[in-house]
């Protein structure tokens, strides 16, 4: 049996979420006596080989230039062809913006079903079971897919990729059979804010809320973020007020994040905000109200004024990092 993992790259660099998915898939594969085959669209052979370090025995490498930009129908068709060739019934992929777009179409194309955005995956009685939070994190469901063909998308930053072993994957080139009709829908370009880490991909996030009192105080958040090498996030209150762009919003109607460290400054911790960040590994809250709900989920809290605590913390970290 083969589990296929769709690896994702941008600008030739494999995304960390792809390593996480391969690692998680190999844990499942071990229990099912299966092997993991990775699929990589674009990048280069070295990248294809590197996937072996996380548990892929083989990488099917698709160099087709037409797939340089994302085209959902063409990608779906290519993956379906690779599944057939590899006799794979199970596909795992990171629940990134690409993965979330691709996974449902793929599930239908292969006459299977999808368990989206899962946060844990295991084998029980020979079947793959997965868990994910629903109702804004107010409950968790455990599901299994009863059709033979199964697609799982894995929430980024939740599964650990660990360190790469020295093993290289065997690379096999594959040219999918595609025609023009498969490219009716295609991405023609991307606009990426340069030099900025997206909250959805960041290991460390510093977020600010209404407690900051105005956009003019954001250099405080930015300063702490820069010191930590963090992305900046925001509560919806400040996004709605126009202080910060929507791309930074963390929460149920913003982005779901699971960084190693999440620092909430002047954020009350409304249920919709928690829905987006409560799976962070370590949460720090700075709030002047000792009863703010954010302290209920925080690992460490400081009760105090952001205008005093944040600059002091930035200075302390600077000396800690020897900057």
């Amino acid at each position: 049996m083969t589990i296929l993992v769709l690896a994702e790259q941008r600008d030739g660099k494999v995304k960390k979420a792809s390593y996480e998915a391969i690692k998680a898939a190999s844990a499942v594969a071990t229990q099912l006596n299966a092997t993991v085959t990775a699929v990589l669209f674009g990048a280069d052979e070295a990248a294809a080989k590197s996937l072996g370090g996380y548990g892929a025995a083989k990488t099917v490498f698709v160099a087709d230039e037409r797939l340089h930009f994302y085209a959902n129908s063409a990608y779906v068709k290519s993956v379906a062809q690779i599944m057939e060739k590899e006799a794979a019934d199970v596909v795992m992929l990171p629940a990134t913006s690409l993965g979330k777009d691709l996974a449902p179409r793929l599930a239908v194309r292969i006459d299977g079903a999808l368990a989206p955005d899962v946060t844990s995956i295991a084998v029980e009685d020979g079947a793959i079971v997965a868990q994910r939070p629903v109702y804004a994190g107010k409950s968790v469901i455990k599901v299994k897919i009863n059709s033979a063909k199964q697609v799982f998308s894995l929430r980024p930053n939740v599964f650990s990729a660990g360190e790469a072993s020295g093993t290289e994957a065997v690379v096999e080139n594959f040219a999918p059979a595609l025609d023009d009709a498969d490219f009716v829908t295609k991405a023609t370009g991307t606009t990426i804010a340069s030099g900025k880490i997206d909250v959805a991909e960041a290991n460390v996030i510093v977020s600010g809320g209404r407690g900051l009192q105005g956009p003019e105080h954001w250099p405080l958040i930015q300063g702490l973020a820069d010191t930590l090498g963090a992305a900046t996030g925001a509560s919806r209150a400040v996004v709605d007020a126009g202080w910060r762009p929507h791309a930074e919003q963390v929460g149920q109607t913003g982005k779901t994040v699971s960084p190693n460290l999440y620092v909430a400054c002047g954020i009350s911790g409304a249920i919709q905000h928690l829905a987006g960040m409560s799976s962070s590994k370590c949460i720090v809250a700075i709030n002047k109200d000792k009863d703010a709900p954010i302290f209920q989920v925080a690992d460490y809290g400081i009760v105090g004024d952001v205008f005093e605590v944040v600059p002091a913390l930035t200075e302390e970290l600077k000396s800690f990092f020897g900057k």
Partner: peptide, 18 residues
């Protein structure tokens, strides 16, 4: 095709320390 095996309340994280 997708079967819900169970629905549970998430493990409540203990409030950390101030």
């Amino acid at each position: 095709r997708v079967e819900v095996i169970e629905m549970t309340k998430p493990a409540i994280k203990e409030a950390g320390r101030i």
